[in-house]
Amino acid sequence: MRTSSGDVRSSVRAHASIRTELLSGGGTRLETLRSDPPLTLRQTGPGVVHLVSTAAGPLGGDRLRLDIDVAPGTMLDIRSIASTLVLPGPFAEDSVMVVNARVGAGASLRFAPEPTVLAAGCSHRVAVRLSLARDATVFWREEIVFGRHGERPGRCRSRFDAVVDGMPLLRQELVVGDPASDGSPAMYGTARCVGSTLVAGRGATGTALGETTRETTREATEDATRRGHAEAVRTGKAVGRAVLRDGCAVLPLAGPGVLVSVLADDAVQLRERLEWGEALAAPGGVAPAFPSGQR
């Protein structure tokens, strides 16, 4: 594969990791910040890390892995400098991106990189495995663009699993570019972009969405779900109703979280719609909610 700079590179294995540590004064320190090109990490502020891609791709054959460990009581904000362009490799191999994130008790993680663009011919797999302590907070945004301008996208499967205190909160897998379901009005219709933001834990609710997602212990969640459902059956009205606007749904989950789900025609519209839904899903904002004095 010839990259934009004209180099030819072979496929890479990279394993980067970030681990936070609670300072005695209550602040967050990055205990580990291990880059592994092309996954390059830069600290750009207190508890803020930017992902800087230092090579084209990922390309087919690349296996990238990022481990994130947010220690109890700490806060981490992960962003990226630019969008990720997934390209085919020299051989017919998938590119793979795995993100394992663990968020401890009272900790908060915001993960909002720029979009992933699926270039023609790519074959990409993503797995995000998010494990939350029951009073952890998370804001996790994922944006996928179906090809560059005027281009048909390659293929992608993106699996997302979020577990809170051992109980499943959200499991979903987006499949893009499968000829069997391409253009289905049940999946993406005519949209060129799909995105979602999971807001979970403290702050993951809103007056617009009712009460069902506010309680965060496992028992309380199950109870609330059962009560909420029983009430829905009795009154015929949904408890914790979704909020809807063109191409955007703010969906209270059965567990302690809200999913903003968006379909859009382009990346600008995708971000606008997501931000509209995120404001409803987390009216007070979630991470980074740095207490004054920590910056």
Partner: peptide, 13 residues
């Protein structure tokens, strides 16, 4: 499997 159909979610709501 957890394959998702975002349009079905929007349609249902």
């Amino acid at each position: 499997p957890a394959t998702t159909a975002p349009a079905l979610d929007l349609l249902a709501e």
